[in-house]
């Protein structure tokens, strides 16, 4: 089991850092490129949610991501000290609607839920803590 950390300010311009973070994890866990992209996407959506909703506009705050790499699963623990915000309660996009009827938003949390196998939220010590788990197939031998 190994762990990796990434901490950054709630600035949307920091998002590209996630790509390098995921790339390092993908290398360590020998993930294929397609899974790495999906994880990058789920993390971007979760982090963007924090940046947009957890902290009032213009205020500074930190977003921390802890990645735990195990043989059978990857776990990403996202935490921030912003206002209580539970993305698992957020309204999810209806992806079956026609273009004319589709609202512009709501896809972020939908993507997180679809890519990850488990997504849980808790509020603890004044922090939002979102845990996202992805099971890994153990057929490398």
């Amino acid at each position: 089991m190994t762990e990796r950390h990434l901490i950054f300010h709630n600035d949307i311009q920091q998002i590209p850092q996630l790509a390098c973070f995921v790339e390092a994890i993908a290398e360590e866990a020998s993930l294929d490129q397609s899974l790495a992209m999906s994880l990058n996407l789920a993390l971007e959506e979760a982090v963007t949610n924090v940046i947009m909703y957890a902290y009032p506009a213009g205020s500074d705050g930190l977003v921390s991501i802890e990645a735990v790499i195990r043989d059978d699963a990857l776990e990403f623990i996202l935490s921030d000290s912003g206002i209580p915000f539970d993305p698992t309660e957020a309204r999810e996009a209806d992806v079956t609607l026609a273009a004319e009827d589709r609202p512009i938003g709501g896809l972020g949390i939908f993507l997180v839920r679809n890519i990850m196998d488990e997504v849980t939220y808790r509020r603890e010590d004044g922090k939002n803590i979102l845990t996202m788990r992805k099971h890994l197939k153990q057929n490398n031998n």
Binding site: A19, A99, E100, R102, G105, F110, L111
Partner: peptide
């Protein structure tokens, strides 16, 4: 090479304009 929901939103905006 990569698209997130914000990028999808751009595609949808174009699609809605065309419709």
């Amino acid at each position: 090479s990569y698209i997130s929901s914000s990028g999808l939103r751009i595609f949808l905006t174009i699609r809605k304009a065309a419709a």
